[in-house]
Amino acid sequence: MKATPQFRCKPSSRELVLQATAEAKSVASATKSSSDPFVPLTPREVRKDAVARILSQGGDPGNTKLVLSQSTLQFGRYRGQTFKWILENDGGYAVSLVAAHQKEREMDTSDTVYMANKDALASYACGFPKVAIAVGDRRARNATRAMVSQSGREDQQVVGFGAHKGQTWQELYEAIDKERRGESQAQKPAAQPASSQPTPSVPAPCQPPRTSASQSAPTLSSSATKSRAPVSKAVSRKERPSLAFSNDALTDAELLAAVEDMAPPPVVGEPQVLKRGESAPVSFPIKT
């Protein structure tokens, strides 16, 4: 004879199955439809009845847990059923009953028949870790419901099952929303990699070179002067434009033309060959 009930657990998480069995539903229905009066037993009578049941099955009446397992409920839909049977067939009812009784005991210290019977059931049920965890979860959910009813914030209700057990509705919604955002980002097309071919560069507009007043205009060497073709007619100084230095940009053609105009006018006629050490004569136009 064993004092430990045969719990029904979920294969995946090993959590207690809290739903009632078909046998429990049948017993609850029969109790509800029964018109026979039920007289609750005192704690002494409940213990005496449990010891007699243990002795009839060859058990040890000195085993406290075994005696509690064979003690019977004295109220409710399962009155007359042992504590062990209730845990095996309707764990949810036992968990709810114990959680409510623990809350009740915080304010009520009476020692009535029903309170003593609930004390015995709570002592037996919470001796098993799985039941104790389920009772703690149920009390947390009950406290949250009371807070929600006062504040009106339904998002603070606690999930009591599944992978998100123990989380509030708000935490569950935020977690699902993050997952949805992650999925939407994953569904977006990936950015196309940059092409390995170089992008054709657009040539910048040509800018003429800028000259400043501090820069001197280039002068033509004597060899360059000699190589120029002879000019048949001398140009007067009045007709030659002067080179004005400014910050305005000049093109190469304009700069070269200006420099050529500043050069002394060549002598009309055959080119004169100079000896070493001699300088070329300079002719000045006669003003009229």
Rank of each mutant, 00 (worst) to 15 (best):
R44I: 00
L243N: 06
G92P: 03
A280F: 15
T4L: 05
K65G: 01
P281S: 02
E15R: 06
F7T: 05
R237H: 10
V113S: 07
P265A: 15
A229C: 11
E239F: 03
R181L: 13
V231E: 15
A132Y: 08
A213M: 05
C206T: 09
A22Y: 08
S283I: 09
Q197T: 10
P200Y: 01
P193G: 15
Q197V: 07
T251Y: 07
A30Y: 00
N63A: 02
S223Q: 10
P218A: 12
S29F: 07
G182T: 12
D111G: 00
L73Q: 04
P218K: 01
A175Q: 13
A217R: 04
S96V: 01
V159G: 01
V282M: 09
A20I: 08
E239D: 12
R53F: 05
P271V: 11
H164P: 00
C206F: 13
P200L: 03
D137G: 05
A213G: 03
Q6L: 12
C9M: 04
P200C: 01
N63K: 03
D108F: 07
A52D: 15
V282E: 14
Q150A: 14
K233N: 12
V113L: 03
S184C: 11
P271A: 14
D137T: 05
E183D: 14
S56R: 04
G166N: 12
T219C: 00
E179W: 13
K84N: 11
T72S: 03
A116D: 06
A163E: 10
P208W: 13
E254A: 15
A24N: 09
N63P: 07
D36P: 00
A280M: 15
V27K: 09
Y78V: 07
S26H: 06
D60S: 06
S246H: 09
D36G: 07
L220P: 00
A24E: 13
Q170M: 11
P264D: 11
H164K: 09
F161Q: 01
I54L: 03
K178V: 15
A125D: 06
K48E: 13
S12R: 07
P40W: 00
T219N: 01
N247R: 02
P203A: 06
T144H: 10
K226W: 05
